[in-house]
Design a protein around this nucleic acid. Structure first.
Lengths: 212, 212
DNA sequence: CCTACCGATCGGTAGG
DNA sequence: CCTACCGATCGGTAGG
């Protein structure tokens, strides 16, 4: 089984071009959301104005509202789609018959791949969730709490099965997710390291901290 | 030598109470900067208004300008003070006669301690630098580039001296700094783990990825 | 999808 | 340190 097995359904979630062919309206909305994600990442949600966004899209600010409901709604869509991707991934994996160390490796690979291939969306989820309004804010933080708990549970299992060193699961989980987040650095850099090299080396460094 | 040796000069840089006793004006400015750092962290620089800040300080918005020049200037002061702390730390250490692995351990401890004891300032430096205006923006990113290069160099030395595994220094540096950043999680949590426990376990997890 | 426009709020200043 | 206020810009709406 290759590490990519778990990622097969993600391309369908990405379905930008599909949507474009099938529903022109949805496509324009997707286009707007993509530009919004890029600007939210570059300038932050609060510092991005609807007029800036409209200019990037190529229409007047007022016209945006034919496609989206509000600035907040765009943030919600960007974040909860990405959160769903993450939830689907870990739930598919949980009941799978592979050992805990391999599960963690696959999770690291999944997150690195998300961070590299869907940089804007992933970055916005991680850095701009604070600007969600209620009840979305609580919804998100709850989902995140559940997610990281699942990850800690996998590490706990690994320690009990003697597959892993007796590290503090909380610290390992935190370091893994944070290290992936740190790849924003690489994204801003001259990219002398290839995505594959990056992924493999990150896996190897982090797994070294876990493996017996 | 205890890991804290390198931190002795930091308390003098923190000198909030000293300034309070000596120069009342400077003290009020410090008070404002501290409130600003907290709000910039909680809501982001752009979403923090001078009126919000004024209310937290207990004066009218216009009165803030008797103590500070502008909203931007506050961000600059918060960020460059913290950046200076980091630079002082690594420069003091560079020419020191300890091995590379110990240097990295001390750097991890330094960053964890900064993240825990000066959460607002550290967080603002890491997350809000993007809102600096030129020439401060370039100044900051340059300082950061130099800093992480120094850290990579230490890891490179460690590998050449056979103290460390042949990891990719870039990845190790990135994971270390990102893991510390991830402690914002802990800061928002119920804090069932003590700062010391946190520091020691983070050191041990990350050093495991490096140590032969 | 546009023009025209709304009330609210922004960072900051004048003058005392 | 305050009152009073500035021009600019914000997210969003009406109406076509």
């Amino acid at each position: 089984m290759t590490p990519l097995t778990y990622l097969t359904d993600i391309t369908s979630l990405l379905s930008l071009s599909m949507a474009k062919a099938q529903r022109p309206k949805a496509s324009k909305k997707e286009f707007i959301l993509q530009k919004a994600a890029t600007m939210f990442r570059e300038k932050g949600f609060s510092a991005t104005s609807m007029r800036d966004l409209a200019e990037a899209v190529g229409i007047e600010a007022a016209s945006l509202y034919n496609h989206i409901q509000s600035k907040s709604e765009m943030l919600q869509e960007i974040i909860f789609r990405m959160a769903n991707n993450c939830n689907v991934q870990i739930e598919n994996m949980e009941n799978d018959d592979i050992n805990s160390l391999k599960k963690i490796e696959l999770l690291i690979r999944f997150h690195v791949q998300m961070m590299l291939s869907r940089f804007d969306d992933y970055y916005v989820m991680i850095n701009e969730w604070i600007h969600l309004s209620e009840p979305y804010l609580t919804n998100f933080t709850t989902q995140r709490r559940v997610y990281v708990q699942k990850m800690e549970n996998i590490i706990n299992d690994g320690i009990r099965n003697k597959e892993m060193k007796p590290v503090m699961p909380y610290i390992a989980m935190l370091s893994i997710l944070s290290s992936v987040r740190g790849l924003e650095f690489w994204h801003r850099s001259t990219k002398k390291i290839s995505p594959t090299e990056l992924e493999d080396n990150m896996v190897s460094f982090l797994i070294n901290g876990l493996k017996k």
